[in-house]
Amino acid sequence: MDPRVSVVDKRLAGIERIIAVTGGKGGIGKSLTSSVLALTLAQLGYKVGLLDLDMSAPSAHVILGIDGIFPEEEYGIIPPEVHGISFMSICYFTGDEPAPLRGEDITNAMLELLAITRWGALDFLIVDMPPGIGDAAMDVIRWLKRAEFLILTTGSKVALVTVKKVIQMLQELQKPIVGVIENMKMRESGLVRDELSAYNVPLLGAIEFDMDLEDKIGDAAALAESTMAARLTEIVIQDPRFKLSQN
């Protein structure tokens, strides 16, 4: 018997809301949005954690410019606080080495992180979900019982075709969906609204494509001033779905 699954709930018990950022396709900005959302919430005064669950290609540390730190060991491992965010990723252990992990390895590595990481009390834990709806994503959905899903799409039919499957699957599993954000919006179009109208999910807003965003990667202060951060701040402040129970 694998004992680790039994302790996951306990590790997450001090967290008020777990927001899992997902979307069907790779390359739609899950890691960037997760990282900037965590920064935004931290700047608004919330206690925030960020968990990068991309085991093969973790990138949140690159986005936030996190380097040269290692978690503290204390009855488990304590995520280091960087830019006001408690941050956990497999990158602490793999460094820059490629770690070619197969499905079972990915499952094991994610479960290990969930079982040994002591988050303490947080308002929000932002989870950068594994891409797609394969083994890894299904494992996370099963283990993070209290997760609410924030779905990213772009205004492309190619992204939307998969996003619809993700929504359908989450709804079948009766998992709460915070809403959908359109990322990298390049032009006015009703495509996202029209394509998702049948699914009864809140459309939270859109983040415009930002030609300068790439230059801000690795610089948390610059990212906090980006258009993406501004849009996410609007969404978080204005949308009641981001309120904590005590607010």
């Binding site: 602490y92 793999t94 080495e97 490629p98 770690a99 197969r102 094991n108 290990e112």
Partner: peptide
């Protein structure tokens, strides 16, 4: 030490002693 925390990262640091592949179970 890294493997101690997450044994799967063995795939980053270990290789097959014969063919040097990181693809092992």
């Amino acid at each position: 030490e890294a493997i101690h925390f997450a044994p799967e990262v063995a795939h980053a640091y270990m290789r097959c002693p014969r063919c040097k592949s990181p693809d092992f179970e």
